[in-house]
Structures are given as structure tokens and as C-alpha cells.
Amino acid sequence: MIYSENILVCIVIPLLIAALFNRKGTRRFLLAFAIGMISCLLSAYITGYVQFLTGITPEEMSAFYSPILEEIMKLMPLLFYLFVWSPKTSSFFSAALGLGLGFATFENCCYILSYGAENISYVMIRGMAVGIMHLVCALALAFGLTSARQFRVLSLPAVIGSISLSMVFHGLYNMLVSKPGLSSVFGYALPLITAVAVYFPFRSMLNREAESGSKETKP
């Protein structure tokens, strides 16, 4: 058994203090990172509770249902940020990345403390796969939400549709790695392949946004 709340406090306090000494963009990222870790802890609580209520085994819960709960927990702070502060697209993406990374980092911390970190190759594979998977899910979610907002069609169906994509991607990964063998190799490779495929369109989109932003600010 590990005391995940204590681990959370231990990591979040320096982050929050560091946020005080940083400028707006970095502060936003650090806060999103901390909120991502808190979301991870809360989703672990809810997953445990649902598991207790339904009597599903931990393996089944992790492979089939936790992606749904975890993605909902990631969506909540992002939606709150989007509706309350109406941030710029680039700021929103930065917050989504921080949230996804924070979530993945805390999940990995707890996993490594529970099961050990003796095998460096396995730890690296897990770190890259889970870290990138949460990142890709957060990006997919942010892209869907910002596109809908940009054209003023941010409705409930669009939000649910966006979150469905990240849930399915997360669920596919969890299901593939739930059993050792060839399927888990595909599962570990899936986030990396997707991140490479998404990287270039994502960079060009951000560059276009930056160009249009600079044109708007010019007199």
C-alpha cells in the first residue's frame, strides 16, 4: 500500500511555490500540471468506489472502465477553464498539455512506488507509453473543444464527441497492454506512433494561429 495523498502533497507544494515566481504562461502550465495530478488522485478514488459498488475485478476495471472515468476527470478542469476564463487557443493547449502530463506523471509515480523500478527498460517503456498516451488524449480533447468554440458551436454533443475520442484512444491502449504478448507491444507503440503522426499538423496549426495572432495585433 502506498500513501498517494502524501506523494501528491510532496510534489504539488514545490510546484505551487515555483508557480509564484514565474510569469503567466509558465505559471499556467505549472498549475495545470498540479491540477492534472489532483485529477489523477480523484479519478483513482472514484475508480475504487465504482469497483467496490459493481464488484468488477481490478484488471477489468483498469482495462475497460477506468479510461471513461479518467477522461471525464481530465475534461472537468479543462471545461471549467474554457468557460470561466475563455483563454486563447494557445493558452488552452498549454493548459491541456500540463494537465495531461501531470495526470501521467502522478500515475507513473504511484505505479513505480507500488511495483518497483528495478527494470529500467520496462520503466522507460511505461513512462513513454503512458506519458504520451495521456498527452495525446489531452491534445485530442483540447483540439475538439477549441475548434467548436472558435466557430461558436461548442454544444453538449460536440463536447461529448470530443471526449469520446480520447476515451476510445485511452481504452484501446489500456485494453492492448492488459495482457502480455504481442498485443502489449502494439499497445506500448500506439501512443508514440500517434504522437509522431499528430506532431507536424499540430505544429503547423499552432504556427498558423501565431501568425494570425501577430497579424491581428499589427496596426
Binding site: 477489468e60 482495462a63 475497460f64 479510461p67 471513461i68 467548436a148 454533443p157 469520446s164 484501446l172 498485443s183
Partner: peptide, 26 residues
């Protein structure tokens, strides 16, 4: 392939179907 005998009352592919229909409707 991975879980041939596992059939769940609500699975991720159902979430995908819901998402697909809502996105098409949007």
C-alpha cells in the same frame, strides 16, 4: 483477439459509437 470471452454491458466501442454519431450530428 486479446479478451475473446469478455463481453461487457457497456464497452469503449459503445462510447466510440456515441461519439461518432454526436460528431456527425454536430
Amino acid at each position: 483477439v486479446v479478451h475473446p470471452d469478455e463481453r461487457l454491458p457497456f464497452s469503449i466501442s459503445d462510447v466510440a459509437d456515441i461519439g461518432e454519431q454526436l460528431m456527425l450530428a454536430s
